[in-house]
Amino acid sequence: MTKPFLIIGGGPAGLAAAHSLASVGQKVVLVEKENKLGGAPILSGYAKLVPSGEWAKDAIGAMVDRVVGNPNITIKTGATVVEFSGEPGTFTAKLSTGDAIDNSASILCTGFTHFDSVNKPEWGFGTFPDVVSTTQVEQMISSGQGVRRPSNGEKPKRVAILLCVGSRDRQIGREWCSKICCTVSAKMAMEIREELPDCHVYIYYMDIRTFGLYEEIYWKSQEEQKVKYIKARIAEVTSDGDKVIVKGEDTLVKRPITIPFDLVVHAIGMDPNVDNMLISSVFGIDLHHWGFLKQENTYGVMGATSRPGVYVAGSATGPETIDDSIAQGNAAAMSALAAVVGQSMAAE
């Protein structure tokens, strides 16, 4: 009998990996740092997801439920791995709770950390109450409260969404594209227009990256909801005490813009998990030069890290969508299973 599989992180990737291994009769131990499963969509209270349009609590909630009820899966919440030793097939992980988990292979599904907009002080987050992040707007929508100005609770009449906040920016050492924020912003703009038809929504962009089928969301936002797109990266956000004032250059018409808004939304990017340095040293695996967990190869074994028997999936590897994180969770599970089964067959 092989030892259980250890999965670290209970977001979409980890939930998918745990479920697929349990489905083929394997024992799984799922370790999650927070006290709740579901990862970013649940912990940060996302509203409707792209591209399905399903509510996060329903879609990801269902993934949590089928894992929680599964007899093959042991769940350890409020726990992290503090020591990891051994060889493929016979690893031991020591948890922060004191438990020791023998395991045959591990899959790191530790996800990402939201970019903290206070690191871009010129854009007013943390200074003006009516400058918020996409996660805050997701929460306004998912809580049923609706999109309101935090300063006075009023419905905004003009909203600006600034793209690439914390992404594609050498000044703050973040050169990657966070992949999902264009699409999420286009979706969010539509949700705002649906709730508040009199509210004008502007999206300030450098490029629009609604890749693949997501292009439909971009088109719909313009064609059905009349969301306005302005090619400009904003210089600064100030305030006159009531409105938040966005200053920039409309690059297409070569004209300065200084426009008052009721609400400014930062489309925040996906940073490497703040735990990654620790994870890298505990598990003895390499990091990508941007700080994500490094995949050893792209075309051979899906999800392999620099240490045999330790795999990685989802947004731990770099900015990912939920559906791709799930696919990677399943793929890493298959890689781990193949290696462990192969090893035990060879031993017989």
């Binding site: 400009a232 990266r233 210089a235 920039g248 250059e249 409309d250 690059t251 070569k254």
Partner: peptide, 23 residues
Amino acid sequence: WQCGSCTNSCTINAINPDFNPRY
């Protein structure tokens, strides 16, 4: 990549909009 950040943060552009490094 023509984002306009230089122009919109520029000291001189604030006085003279024709001063436009991005352009």
